[in-house]
Amino acid sequence: MPVIQVKNKSVHIQELNKGARETVVLVHGMFSNLSVYYFNIAPVLAQSFHVVMYDMKSHGMSERCEYGYDLLSMTDDLRDLLDALHLKSVYLAGYSYGGLVAMKMAMRYPSRVKKLAVIEAPDPSDNETLSIIDIYSKEFLVDYINNYTDTTRMRMGKRQLDKNHRMYEYLFYETSIKEDMHNERFFFADDAIGNIAHDTLLIYGKSSNCLPSGRKLYHTVPRSKMTLIEGDHNLPIQQPLETANKLKDFFVGWQVKFKQINHKLWQALRLSYHH
């Protein structure tokens, strides 16, 4: 199990197609883990790229940490991970809160991001996440999971319920996550968002309650384009292949495809010349 040390903290990472020239880094959302990409999305991207997934602190199989869930700390973590893996510049995609991390990364370290993809990132000022944290209880978790089960068809038994409950209790009552996320509520008003110079793809679900957030970003991020897929906020679970193909096409880009076609044509011409 690849658990690496990054600044004296254990970070669980997964890599596919190591050795490919270009790298895609995938950032998961809060209260989730890298498995949101591992089964379907990452293998598609790995057809063309070296793919790196990692578990955020206290999530999945990464080490627990009491502090640092704000976007500055989360992008410090990501920068440290890129350093540890000797990755100078990468194609970056983030889902939900991970989408905000990806945007912040492009704002703070523009040279380390080649292209930016944001999947279902919420506007922290009108997002339900914060109210969820305030009203959290085990009963709430059961309701939440039942709803999640309906929209994703994933089931959860008692052991899983207890495991999730332990994670939420730790994060909500023993870490600074609540305060840190609350402090990011004005993130969409940050002028620096309007200065993101990267080609940016915004992927949102047609019936997602985050869709208005996506539209706001579309109007603010200069080089952004928006693509809608059938589904709600759980898009990467509901439509993994479509999500993966949109990401792949965006990261590969028409310039690269053009080069590939050109290369094939030249090869064909050279072959016909030799014959």
Partner: peptide, 18 residues
């Protein structure tokens, strides 16, 4: 895996790696 063994996706990741 999911119904009888109640494994969640990150556990299936661990299993796959093994």
């Amino acid at each position: 895996f999911t119904r009888d063994l109640e494994m969640d996706s990150i556990e299936i990741v661990s299993f796959s790696e093994k």
